[in-house]
């Protein structure tokens, strides 16, 4: 096992553990904080996979912006923390069933697929190269992304307006 391999397994266990903690926390603030850990671990993994620019984006956008938004919402909503079990059984049981099938399929695919046996080599895409590549080849995709973000902005603005227009026919 090389040093890189060691780092990978370390990061993988950190990511899985923190995510597992996140989804089982009753307190939403704790859950979000665990998830920040998970995302930072993912960012390190990105770095390991030779995408430093994306790792930075991951930290800034995911672990920074998005998680902070989550925290804000959690504080705004003030959910009732005394709900019943964290993972209710009548939802968990079918999930476990299908999750087991999914896991079997996934492991079988990962084992049988010859592409999966190839060992990853280290390589780095410098931010300059990456930027050139994106704007030379995928400028249309960038435009579409900006459009999607604009729509997201408009939707959030529309939904978040203070005065909610009451539609008479909708039952409250």
């Amino acid at each position: 096992m090389t040093l890189h391999g060691l780092i990978f397994y370390l990061l993988a266990s950190v990511i899985l553990a923190s995510t597992g903690m996140a989804i089982t926390r009753r307190n939403l603030v704790h859950a979000v904080l665990y998830l920040v850990f998970s995302f930072i671990g993912s960012a390190l993994l990105f770095c390991l996979f030779g995408a430093p620019f994306l790792a930075l984006l991951q930290v800034i956008i995911y672990a920074g912006a998005i998680m902070v938004v989550f925290l804000f919402i959690v504080m705004m909503v003030k959910p009732d923390l005394s709900e019943g079990t964290v993972l209710p059984l009548r939802q968990l049981l079918p999930m476990v069933l299908f999750g087991f099938m999914y896991a079997v399929v996934g492991v079988l695919v990962a084992v049988t697929d010859p592409a999966g046996r190839a060992v990853l080599e280290t390589a780095v895409a410098k931010p300059t190269e990456f930027g050139h590549y994106v704007f030379a080849r995928h400028y249309l995709a960038v435009e579409i992304i900006s459009l999607i973000l604009l729509i997201g902005l408009m939707g959030a603005l529309h939904l978040g307006r203070e005065k909610v227009p009451k539609e008479p026919e909708e039952p409250s």
Binding site: T2, H4, G5, F8, Y9, A12, I15, L16, T19, G20, I23, L48, F49, G99, Y102, A103, G106, V107, V109, A110, V111, D113, A115, G116, R117, A118, V119, L120, E121, T122
Partner: peptide, 19 residues
């Protein structure tokens, strides 16, 4: 030389399952 590609698939799959 990091790890075989299959291991990354397993990691991502497990993460997806948690999600």
């Amino acid at each position: 030389m990091i790890v075989p590609f299959g291991h990354v698939i397993v990691l991502a799959g497990a993460l997806f399952l948690l999600g």
